[in-house]
């Protein structure tokens, strides 16, 4: 397979890993996290530093996963008391704090980042890891545990009344999601061989959110669909015109707004967490047109 296509597949796999983790956090337990790229960055930096120190790739990849999970735990625990929009801002703030440190610490190379990371990520590794993670997460999401997480997202008070320790499961979602992002980060670093703080910014977090929203929040297959679309889209656009890829972020903004207004459950249809039960039609215009037709009939 040519290098170009294998690169696209590798990027897609990494993006799917990222989106799967965020889907568990946001789509299931209903916690909007705006710092998902940060966990990716932590995994990327940890594993790169360890490989460069001479550790075998898989060991450092695992370490990246664990350290990212640990950060997931650290951010998940104190911010649990926060609901909805406050949590979103706190995760965003956490991302900015970590970025400031990455930019200033000498061990992370400051704004220059880390160079000459050994090339360890290949197509097979990415495909196998993504498939295995997807399978495990799919099992988890369709099990009782997945239903518990979904229930927490729908109604935390009712969940607690049925005996669910919601904090425990919300943190669990954060830890698993962060770990997956850490793995994605490790794979990313050992493929592109160069990382710096600018790879893991708020914009990357938004890109991940876009994948999940597009595919369908709370749908186990959503991240795959969203991940594929968002990974291939810039390439497809680049083939049309080299300038268009500049419009990527603009497009993400439009996607988020339009999806929320027209189809908040995403392409595949999610778990209803983000849809209001009272809304009949999707678009006000359509609704009033329908109304007009009905009135004309009677």
């Amino acid at each position: 397979m040519s290098g170009y296509y294998s690169q696209i597949i590798i990027i897609t796999g990494i993006n799917i890993l990222l989106a799967m983790g965020l889907n568990l956090i946001t789509g299931y337990t209903g916690q909007l996290s705006l710092g998902h790229a940060t966990f990716m960055g932590i995994g990327a930096y940890t594993s790169s530093l360890l490989t460069k120190a001479g550790l075998p790739f898989y060991i450092s990849l695992l370490a990246g996963v664990l350290i990212a999970s640990l950060f997931g735990l650290a951010i998940g625990m104190p911010t649990l008391r926060l609901r909805g929009d406050y949590l979103a801002i706190a995760t965003l703030g956490f991302g900015e704090i970590v970025r400031t440190f990455l930019n200033n610490l000498s061990i992370t190379g400051g704004p220059n980042g880390i160079r000459a990371i050994p090339l360890k990520t290949d197509l097979t590794t990415v495909i196998i890891l993504t498939a295995v993670c997807f399978y495990l997460l799919y099992r988890l999401q369709s099990s009782r545990l997945g239903k518990v997480m979904r229930a927490i997202g729908q109604d935390e008070i009712a969940s607690e009344a049925t005996g669910v320790n919601s904090s425990y499961y919300k943190i669990m979602a954060f830890v698993i999601g962060a770990g997956l992002a850490g793995m994605a980060g490790g794979l990313y670093a050992h493929y592109f061989r160069y990382i710096n703080p600018a790879n893991f910014t708020f914009n990357k977090s938004i890109e991940i959110l876009c994948m999940v929203v597009l595919g369908g929040l709370g749908n186990p297959f959503g991240p795959v669909v969203g991940g594929v679309i968002i990974s291939i889209l810039p390439e497809a656009l680049r083939n049309i015109s080299p300038v268009v890829s500049q419009y990527r972020m603009v497009l993400y903004g439009v996607i988020l707004i339009v999806m929320m207004i027209i189809r908040p459950q995403g392409i595949l249809g999610g778990n209803g967490l983000f849809i209001n039960a009272n809304r009949k039609g999707n678009f006000k215009i359509f609704r009033s047109v329908k109304g007009a037709v009905k009135n004309a009939d009677s």
Binding site: L136, R139, L140, S143, R144, L145, G146, K147, V148, T162, G163, V164, Y169, M172
Partner: peptide
């Protein structure tokens, strides 16, 4: 849930 919980390991295997 209060009777059987939802353990992590048991959910996957």
């Amino acid at each position: 849930h209060s009777r059987i919980g939802a353990p992590f390991l048991g959910s996957i295997i």
